[in-house]
Amino acid sequence: MRLLAFIVGLFLSQAVFATPDTLFLLRHAEKRDGINPNLSEAGKARAEHLVSMLKDKKIKHIFSTNYNRTLETVKPLSQKLGIVVTHYNPRQLTALVKQLKTLKGNTVIVGHSNTTPQLVKLLTDHDVTINEDQFDELFVIEGGALTLLSSNN
């Protein structure tokens, strides 16, 4: 009986401390001006390009803040893959990290020029920055290792 309890406990603890295979973190694509703006034409093109970059990456989860620019950035990918986008609160990144650590499978998280670097820091302890005019950085976290790719390719 103790052995069974140990095995169940071990299984549950691994589920709690599991991490997704690969995390893809990015800032929303280029936007128009205004409050809660939509994507510009360049942003729409980048969102479509993200589909070609990520469609074969075995994505299982997509997270986005609930703003037009972030949702429109992942909409083509979520439609292509048939994955419902999960909204997260950009003011509660620690809660998002806890949620991410319970997932299995590759995950895309789209945020903003301030929240994406904060997430990278929480997940890897690396400091990164995104300038206000940068929309092409794709941060890849796999096994705790951080890689920077460009969504211009």
Rank of each mutant, 00 (worst) to 15 (best):
T147H: 10
G82M: 14
F6W: 12
T102K: 09
F139S: 00
S150G: 07
Y67G: 05
M53G: 06
A47Q: 06
D136S: 07
K60R: 12
G143I: 13
I62W: 01
H112F: 06
D125R: 08
H112D: 14
N89K: 04
A47P: 01
R69P: 11
M53H: 08
P37R: 02
E72P: 00
T70S: 08
I141K: 02
L119Y: 02
S64L: 12
L81Y: 04
Q79E: 08
G105W: 03
L81F: 02
T94N: 13
L3D: 13
R69M: 14
T124Q: 10
N68F: 10
V74W: 01
I130G: 06
D56Y: 04
S78M: 08
T116Q: 03
R46V: 06
L39E: 11
Q79C: 02
S78D: 10
L138I: 03
D33V: 11
R46D: 07
L23F: 00
L119R: 00
K60M: 15
R32A: 12
A145G: 09
L50V: 03
T19D: 14
P117N: 07
T107L: 13
P76N: 02
N114I: 03
Y67Q: 06
H61F: 15
L71A: 12
L39A: 10
K75E: 15
K31I: 02
L81I: 07
L77F: 06
K98I: 12
L50M: 11
T86S: 13
R91F: 13
S150C: 05
L26C: 03
R46N: 06
T19R: 08
F17A: 14
Q79D: 05
H126L: 12
T65P: 10
S52E: 10
N38G: 00
R27Q: 09
G143D: 15
N131D: 14
T65G: 10
N66K: 06
I35K: 04
L77C: 12
S40P: 01
K104S: 14
I109H: 00
D127T: 10
I59H: 03
T86R: 10
L4I: 13
K104D: 13
L119G: 03
L77A: 12
A145M: 14
K98L: 14
I59G: 08
K44D: 05
L96G: 07
M53S: 08
I109K: 02
L146N: 07
I59K: 02
A29K: 01
I59S: 09
D133V: 12
N89T: 05
L149M: 10
A29H: 01
L54D: 00
T102W: 01
L96E: 15
S52M: 09
N66M: 08
V74D: 04
P76C: 03
T115R: 02
N66E: 15
V97E: 15
Q134N: 14
L119T: 00
F24S: 01
V74C: 05
T102E: 12
Q92Y: 06
K31F: 02
A47I: 04
I83C: 09
M53Q: 11
T22M: 15
V110Y: 03
A47E: 11
F139V: 07
D56L: 11
